[in-house]
Design a binder for these strands. Sequence first.
DNA 1: TCCAGGAGCTGAAGCGGTTACGCTTCCATG
DNA 2: CATGGAAGCGTAACCGCTTCAGCTCCTGGA
Lengths: 335, 335
Amino acid sequence: MAGRRPTMSDIARRVGVSRVAVSYALNGRPGVSDEVRERIREVAEELGFAAHKAAKALHGAGADVIGLTLRRTSAALGSEVFRRQFVAGLQMELSARGFGLALQFVEGPDEEVAIHRRWHAERRVDGLILCDLRVDDPRLDAVRELGLPAVVAGGAGPLPGLANLSTDEQAGAGKLAGYLAALGHRRVVRVSGPADMAHTAARTAALEDTGLLDITTVAADYTGEAAAQATRRILSTKGRPTAIIYDNDLMALAGLGVTAEMHVGVPTDVSILAWEDSPLCQVVHPALTVLQRNIADYGMRTARLLFEWLDGEQPRSVKAGNAVLVVRDSTAPPR
Amino acid sequence: MAGRRPTMSDIARRVGVSRVAVSYALNGRPGVSDEVRERIREVAEELGFAAHKAAKALHGAGADVIGLTLRRTSAALGSEVFRRQFVAGLQMELSARGFGLALQFVEGPDEEVAIHRRWHAERRVDGLILCDLRVDDPRLDAVRELGLPAVVAGGAGPLPGLANLSTDEQAGAGKLAGYLAALGHRRVVRVSGPADMAHTAARTAALEDTGLLDITTVAADYTGEAAAQATRRILSTKGRPTAIIYDNDLMALAGLGVTAEMHVGVPTDVSILAWEDSPLCQVVHPALTVLQRNIADYGMRTARLLFEWLDGEQPRSVKAGNAVLVVRDSTAPPR
DNA sequence: TCCAGGAGCTGAAGCGGTTACGCTTCCATG
DNA sequence: CATGGAAGCGTAACCGCTTCAGCTCCTGGA
């Protein structure tokens, strides 16, 4: 069915030169006169020619693909908005360079490492993006061992031998805590993501470091369900907090649902904040005060870090700190 | 940095046979004795060998990759939950067969077609998944012309020359309309997705065909913002409806936000339904009545249709109709 | 006028696999 | 005991492209 696709030989025959001339011409290398080059380009265009990726790859050309593995866990449902925008940002950079993205969902870290290994062995990818860093993540050593360029999106600090785009959680925590403290809040509970995620730990530490609030952290798992349960408990305690910070938008929205269910006024009885924005945070009632960052930009910067490395530079560790506090209707001074 | 990866020649040398024997052994073909085969397997394992994809692809082996292009449009934000689960389902089937997924975000249909063309020319993919079908979608003819196996996820009916997994919108519309009619509703407004999407049109027709309700359709674009505006208008009219159906979860949630903002009781003053479920629909207050379907399964079936085709069978058109009405707290008889 | 040198091109080799085919062995069969 | 055929292996060719080492002109400086 699929008509045979043209090869360089076809072009060579049509133009009346050797395959080599075609190769040189199409790759913009010297060794062909301008007129022949032009002629070859025309014919290539006319035939809809595109070089067979595999044949190029045989000469160490690289697959022009970068790999991304994402966990399928239910908890990951909570970071959909982040993921989508992150991947979209990645994509923009990748496609600008003609790179493809190989995406695979995995169950756990072992499977993830196995996939990386296979991708590498089969030369399917030129580099990797690592997301959702855990504390003591086994993937780091595995990927170092493979020697495959990889950039870690997230995490707390420089990672030797890898590129890294970490988030400036101190800055974010400062804005959040500063704002709440200025409003007069003191007793605050934070419903966090899984405790074993690197940036959960980083946020906890960053919040404590501000010293502005009396913060208790309750670990959830990014799902609405867990956040709802946690919120019910929090709102039922005697000395309940005057504000709750949720580590992502989904949990904050679930928490807001619980306040409605329990007839707790927002922001009159309790203030609610989300440590990540999403379109939904604006359309619920009351609209949520959030710490917003440019996620697509985050993805783009991640891709650029990888390209730098592929282009021969040393892997770098960079900090992204563009989060901004967007005050909406879910926060107010405590009673 | 990346240590040279072993080739078949390396194995052959170690074992003391020819490269061909290695090829036969590793591919499970006859022509090698069991002991030699075993020995080769051992060495391959020991060396961490995996055949170079590109080299195989040179022999028409196929890239073992299928391509998926998704629109980046803001409206698409509304189908995140669907997309994620769909892609996850796809993935499960793909990885079970050792296939990779090439994902690319695009701006519009032209870019999409261009990417398909390039992927095909470079032999990067063995097949395509087409999502978000429009009425008179230009991608259909383009992909037919390429002769690249493609399955369309969504759409209204059989598409000659392509595989297709369509949704049984009649069944869904029947359940939705039947339930509302049974409750005693008559005047209903539906806030739909973009009018030029094939399944929006299919739903509109399906709802009308039931003849059970007096339905008005207001086209939005899947975003919360548009849905909120539409809802404000709907709730402000004199003879306002007793129920509103939203074409996806995000719009329904936005609509719910507006009812809170306008102090319209749900479900006392108006019933709200979402034509797609998501975790959030359960955690908001009141929890939303939805038409739920197994999206991951939908993705899996899509992949299977493609594999059937790749395996030499004729492309098929199948209808998926497993939607189930989940009644929660946002619906009640009209006053 | 001669020859060095570069521009413009080609042939051959090779990337890492696969496939077609041909050559030994060895065993069962008549 | 001759013979046919399958099992088991190797050789050669090839997939589509790149790269290297020539080869042939043509130009221009001494």
